[in-house]
Computed example of a mutant assay.
Amino acid sequence: MRGGIAWRALPRDFPPPTTVYDIFCRWTKAGVWQRVTDVLRDRIRVRAGRRPTPTAAIIDSQSMRGADTVPGASSGWNNGKKVGGRKRHIATDTMGLLLAVVVTAASTQDRDGAHPLLARLRERFSTITLTWADAGYTGRLVHWAHQILNLAVMIIKRADPGFVVLPRR
């Protein structure tokens, strides 16, 4: 409950924290966590009556405050949100299941962070042909994604001010 990964706070019936941490690092390097995530996502999609691999995605970003331990070189200030720290650029399928993540400084524009996100998405999921995004992604990104990645990016714009649930966002 303290937050973060406090390895020394593991329950007493676990192996020593250094052993657990070493295994965690080994599994991360070997891609075990990514494979577990992929298998679970595919199973959830199949149980919902869908194909295991998605054909469409939704992208968005969120700025979050950085911890004191975050190096200054990898953090920034998002003036629109008035937040200093990092920004996570996320791609999900239409069920909201995670497909790809890229973390940048909070000062990174959405459309600039979307380049590596869409490239990673295309690399991992060749079946995706359409991506929905908000107005923050308008501009050269749409043309770049179509020409370079053969990926359509459809911008869903707000019609009315205030909170309104929008389709595919």
Rank of each mutant, 00 (worst) to 15 (best):
D60K: 03
H146F: 07
R124G: 08
R50I: 00
A152R: 13
T28H: 15
R168A: 11
V20Y: 04
H115E: 09
V39Q: 10
G72W: 03
D112V: 14
T37C: 11
A56I: 01
D93C: 00
F163C: 11
G66M: 11
R122P: 00
T104N: 05
V165S: 12
L149S: 02
D93H: 01
P116S: 01
D160V: 15
N78H: 07
T69W: 14
V165Q: 10
I23Q: 10
S126I: 13
T94R: 05
Q62T: 00
T92W: 02
L166V: 11
L40R: 12
D134L: 01
R122V: 15
T138K: 12
P161Q: 13
F24P: 12
W144Q: 09
V39M: 10
P167F: 11
P52W: 08
D38Q: 09
A133P: 07
L117W: 01
Q109A: 12
L121Q: 04
V32Q: 11
V103Y: 06
W7N: 07
R122S: 04
K87W: 04
D134W: 08
A133C: 05
A152V: 13
I128K: 00
H146D: 13
K81N: 08
K29Y: 09
W132E: 03
G3T: 11
V142W: 02
W7G: 06
P71L: 14
G136T: 07
G96F: 00
T108L: 04
I58R: 09
V32N: 06
K157M: 02
A114W: 04
G66K: 02
P17E: 08
G80P: 09
F163T: 03
F163I: 14
L99P: 00
A48Y: 08
G49R: 09
H115M: 11
D93M: 01
R26N: 10
T53D: 02
P71F: 04
L121H: 05
T129H: 15
A9M: 15
T129Y: 03
Q62C: 13
R12V: 09
V32D: 05
G139K: 00
D38M: 12
L117R: 09
T131N: 02
R140E: 10
R51F: 06
S126H: 12
G76M: 07
I23T: 10
R12Q: 04
R140N: 13
D160K: 09
R12G: 02
T18C: 09
S74L: 13
L98D: 09
T18Y: 07
A159W: 15
G3V: 14
Y137M: 07
W77R: 15
A6P: 05
V153Y: 06
A57I: 12
P71Y: 02
R2W: 07
M95T: 15
V36P: 01
M154K: 15
A48F: 14
D22W: 13
A105K: 07
Q34Y: 06
G66I: 06
L97Q: 09
V101H: 02
W77K: 04
L117F: 15
A57T: 01
G80Q: 07
Y137Q: 06
I155D: 03
F125Y: 14
A114Y: 00
R50H: 14
V164D: 15
L97I: 06
R41W: 08
R140W: 03
G4M: 03
T19A: 10
V101D: 08
T69V: 12
V39C: 11
R43Y: 04
G162I: 04
V101R: 03
T138P: 01
D38S: 08
R43P: 07
A73G: 01
V164P: 00
D110L: 00
N150L: 01
G96V: 03
R122C: 03
P15G: 03
R8I: 08
